[in-house]
Every structure is written in structure tokens, then in C-alpha cells.
């Protein structure tokens, strides 16, 4: 069994979101970087659990980023995984990124490709589906459970107002969200071991981006909260009915 987990570097969930260079670039100064939580908590940890169940499993990580992502990759390797591949390029176009991952995946011949359901910075929720299409593999998105029986996968995914359980044979691409696994903290043994795990740097395959970011905007500030006295909740209901007309 060979598993590939796609990871991405994102600003910490509490990072201040601001832009520089005439609103053309994210202001990265002083920003803490983390592994995209959906990639780490759900995709990577579920893959590690599968490897713990079947130790013959080969688990690789892939990221498409510059060398500044190396600390993030080491942190991911401290959680688990045998080796990491970094495609040495920076891009914000999901198709470009997906093409790089697909190229790595083709060469590696993986049975499962896991991604997080989206990154918390660009919120595209696109890379998994694009990788699946480029590899011509089935894709199950927004999965909350993943079980394996030989080469048959049983996957539960979110649907509007509930869940659906699907069956598919490997190879398969799955995007993961809450429910798949529980967050883990790397232990000292993992951190020490991660230092010597291979981190291969490969140059990007020739591909064109399909989109470009022209500029960023921050939403207008809220006008401020209208407070209603605690002894008069009926007034709140009246405001919601008459001012907002929502109830």
C-alpha cells in the first residue's frame, strides 16, 4: 500500500490578515506558519493510522512550495510518514499546484491520495478534485470517515443535511475533513526522527496557471453592535423582525 498526503503551508488561524504592495500581496511579516489544519489533523493523521494498522504501508508527503515550507514539512514528518517531496515552486493557482501533485503521484504510483478539504488561506477546495481528474481516478470529497478492507475503501462523506457512505476500489483520491481523525501532537521521538527522514526537492513540471490573483480586499468594518438590555429580549426579536426582516 502506498499513500500520498498533500500538505500545504498556511498562516496560523489567529494570524492578522493584511496586504501590502498595493493590496497585491499577503503581508507575511511576523506571520506564524502552520500545516493547513485540514491536511494535518484529518488527511495526515488518518494516513498515519492506516500505516499503524499495516506497517508495510509506504507513506509519502508532498507539498508545492518554496524552501520556506521546509519547517512545516519537518513538522509533518514528525507526526509520521516515511519521506516528503517538495516541488520547488510558489503558486496560488490550484490547477498549477494540482498538476505538480499529479505529476509526483504518477511517478510514485500511489493507491490513495489524501488532501485536506481546503486550505484555510485560499479556500479553493479544488486541488483534490483536479488531481483526481488529472490522474483519471475516482474522487470522494469532504470525507468524514475512511475505512479500508484490502483494496476496497468505504468512505463516508458529507451531503446537505446528512451523510452518505460510498464504496470504491483503490486507487482513489479523497479530500478529508472533521471526523476522519483526531489531532495529534508530535512526540520527541517523532521530532528527532523527522530530522533524518528524506525530504526530496524536485523541480516543477511545465504547466501553465489558469488563473491569477489581481488584488486583495478586506471587508468593510462592521458598523458596531446594537445592544439590547438583558431584561428586554422581546425588543431584540422586534428589531430582528422589523429592521432586518429576517424573522
Amino acid at each position: 500500500m502506498k499513500i500520498l498526503v498533500c500538505i500545504s503551508k498556511t498562516p496560523d488561524t489567529t494570524a492578522k490578515i493584511a496586504f501590502t504592495d498595493n493590496n497585491k500581496k499577503f503581508a507575511a511579516d511576523g506571520v506564524q506558519w502552520i500545516i493547513n489544519p485540514y491536511d494535518e489533523w484529518y488527511a495526515l493523521v488518518r494516513a498515519i493510522e492506516l500505516k499503524e494498522k499495516d506497517p508495510s504501508t509506504v507513506l509519502h508527503l508532498v507539498t508545492v512550495a518554496g524552501a520556506d515550507a521546509d519547517p512545516i514539512i519537518r513538522k509533518a514528518l514528525a507526526l509520521g510518514g516515511d519521506e516528503a517531496i517538495r516541488v520547488n515552486t510558489d503558486s496560488h493557482d490550484s490547477f498549477f499546484i494540482a498538476s505538480q501533485i499529479a505529476s509526483v503521484a504518477k511517478q510514485g504510483g500511489y493507491d490513495i491520495v489524501f488532501t485536506g478539504k481546503e486550505t484555510i488561506d485560499y479556500n479553493g477546495s479544488s486541488v483534490g478534485g483536479m488531481v483526481a481528474e488529472l490522474l483519471d481516478l475516482p474522487y470522494i470529497s469532504l470525507a468524514t470517515k475512511f475505512e479500508l478492507n484490502g483494496t476496497a475503501a468505504t468512505v463516508t462523506r458529507e451531503i446537505e443535511g446528512g451523510e452518505e457512505t460510498d464504496e470504491a476500489s483503490l486507487p482513489l483520491v479523497v479530500s478529508c475533513q472533521k471526523g476522519m481523525a483526531e489531532q495529534r501532537i508530535p512526540n520527541m521521538k517523532g521530532i528527532m526522527g523527522a530530522r533524518t527522514k528524506p525530504l526530496k526537492v524536485v523541480e516543477p513540471a511545465a504547466t501553465e496557471a489558469l488563473t491569477t490573483i489581481v488584488s486583495f480586499e478586506t471587508p468593510p468594518a462592521k458598523a458596531g453592535v446594537k445592544l439590547v438590555p438583558a431584561d428586554n429580549p422581546a425588543e431584540l426579536i422586534r428589531l430582528l423582525h422589523e429592521e432586518t426582516k429576517l424573522i
Partner: peptide, 24 residues
């Protein structure tokens, strides 16, 4: 719609047609 089905299909269609996608 960028709902659950849209998130499953639109990226695949983008890659298949080499058509730029704006999701969200």
C-alpha cells in the same frame, strides 16, 4: 453553486477542460 456537489465536480471539470476556475 460552490455547495458540496459543486466542490466535487467543478475542480474536476476545470482540470479536464483546462478552464480557469474561481471557487467561492
Amino acid at each position: 453553486s460552490n455547495n458540496l456537489s459543486g466542490k466535487a465536480i467543478a475542480p474536476r471539470l476545470s482540470a479536464r477542460l483546462k478552464a480557469g476556475l474561481v471557487a467561492g
